[in-house]
Structures are given as C-alpha cells and as structure tokens.
Design a protein around this nucleic acid. Structure first.
Lengths: 136, 136
DNA sequence: GACTCACTCAGGAATGATTATTATATAGAA
DNA sequence: TTCTATATAATAATCATTCCTGAGTGAGTC
C-alpha cells in the first residue's frame, strides 16, 4: 500500500495499475499533455490505451487531483494540483512556466459580483526572461 | 467609409465585405464561437465560408481587435477587445459572464519574475448569482 | 465454487473544431 | 484601367478528444 494508492483510496477511487501509472507519470514534471501522460504510463502498463488515459484524467480532474490547463489553445495540459500558482506562456519559445502571484490566490473562495468562486486560473502571455536575454 | 472600415484601415488590414461582416457579427454580443460568427456573418455575406471566418478571426486576433477565450475547454470563443475584464463560467448553468477585477488589470504590462507580461486572462469558475438563488 | 452487479478497460470507430490546400476572385496601389 | 499581392470559397485533411462495445475484474452473497 504505497503513497499513491493511499491518495486514491482517500478519494474513493478504486486503485488500478492504470490509475497508478497515470498518477506516477506526473512525477516531478508538470504540464503534461494527454499523449505525454500516455507515453509515460505505457512504460509501467504497456497495454494501457489512450482512451483509458483520457478517462482517468477526467476522473482525477473531478476529484481535484489534477487540473487542466488550456493556455496555448491547441491541446490541454494537465498537472498535479499542489500549491496555488498560475501559468505563463512565452510567445517566442512557447515554454510554459509556473508563476507565483499571491494577489491572485485570494481570488479563490471569495465572491465576485455575487458569484461564488470555487476556482481561478490566471494565464499570462509575454516574453520570458531567457528570450529577452537572447534578444540583446 | 464607415467606422469599421476606419478601424481596419488604421491597422493596415484590407477592407473586404467578409471582414466587415465578421467585425459586425460582434455588435453588442460578446463570447461568440467561430460558428456563431459564421452564422451571423452569412446574413451579410451569404457566400462566406467557415474557413474564411477562421482566417479573419486569426487576423483580428493578431491585430489586437479581438481576443480568444478558452474557458470551457471544448471550443474557442471570441470577443471584441474593449475594456479590460475577465471571465466567469458557472458550473451549473454554463453561462459565461464578464467580471470586473481591477486588481487583475495591473498585472498587464508589468514583469513577473523577470518575464514581461503583454497579456493576462483570468478565468473564474463557480456558481453564479442566479443559480445560487435557484438553489434556495 | 458459482452467481451477481458494478465498475474498468482495450481497441477501434466517430466526432467535431480547426487548419491546410488550391484555384479563382478582388482590393488597393500605380 | 492594369497589375500584383492578398483574400476567399470550396474542399480535404488533421488531430485531440469522446463514444461505443464487448471482454475482463473484484467484491459481496449464497
């Protein structure tokens, strides 16, 4: 009974090799596309299908284990939900970076114009530090 | 030489009936999908094709006339860029509402962790005022 | 052990938004 | 008006994502 199994059990999610492999695909790396998750999960469970990966990602999303990021308009990225942060897309090198923006964090769990806010995502677009350096 | 033509000319965008019809599709309404723009534009230019609509939307986006919104993860929405505001998606009725959030507006045109910010989009998720009322 | 019942999965087909292609038409400048 | 780069219509292609189906699995019951 490892740590990942524990996390799933706490959310009443049945533990299966496929689910463990998807969870573990995120080890260390954030911002994975469904296909990247699929490629990594296959190393543990070679027979896993892409459809299964999508369904597990959906399950994890509903259960607040991961969040979906749609910053670059062509495909979804996923990351483990740990620590509040937002995302920056460099228009030049297309890298996606996490950015801390404490002022944004208070926006969660408050009300705006009478609407209750359960979640907030902030997307920043611009030129990253490295690309600015290169331009000089 | 109407007002819309003027706006396009200022951006060095050739004025065509198709472009005018796409621009005018936004009259008053925000948050249109590409297909909704297409349906509205057809009323002025019946022969316009969906491909053309997409290409004009892309052109307008690059020229800062409209912005693309991807808050509900299945298709893009577009709106004229007028006034800074952010978006709220009600998880119950799926309506998208504009929200003013002045604290977010300062985030544009500043630097975060050394990255220059040219644009910022804030997406809020929760239950809207009306749906909260209904639940009572 | 046999039998449910609900859930999970693999494989493959279907969907649907978006993009690419190409030949024709046209806006705007000379 | 003529010319040329650009815009457009029509259509095909792409590709992420969802749907479907039939087979597996595991827990609980008898």
């Amino acid at each position: 009974m490892n740590e990942t199994s524990q996390i799933l059990r706490e959310k009443n999610i049945k533990v299966t090799p496929q689910r463990l492999s998807v969870y573990m695909a995120f080890n260390g790396k954030g911002h994975l596309s469904a296909d990247e998750v699929y490629q990594k999960a296959r190393k543990k469970v070679p027979a896993i299908s892409l459809g299964t990966v999508y369904s597990i990602l959906e399950n994890f999303k509903i259960n607040d284990i991961i969040s979906e990021i749609k910053i670059d308009f062509d495909k979804s990225l996923y990351e483990l939900k740990e620590g509040i942060h937002h995302h920056f897309l460099c228009r030049k090198c297309k890298k996606i970076l996490d950015v801390e923006m404490p002022v944004c964090n208070v926006l969660k769990n408050c009300a705006v114009e009478g609407h209750s806010i359960e979640d907030f995502q902030g997307y920043f677009y611009g030129i990253c530090r490295d690309c600015q350096k290169d331009a000089k």
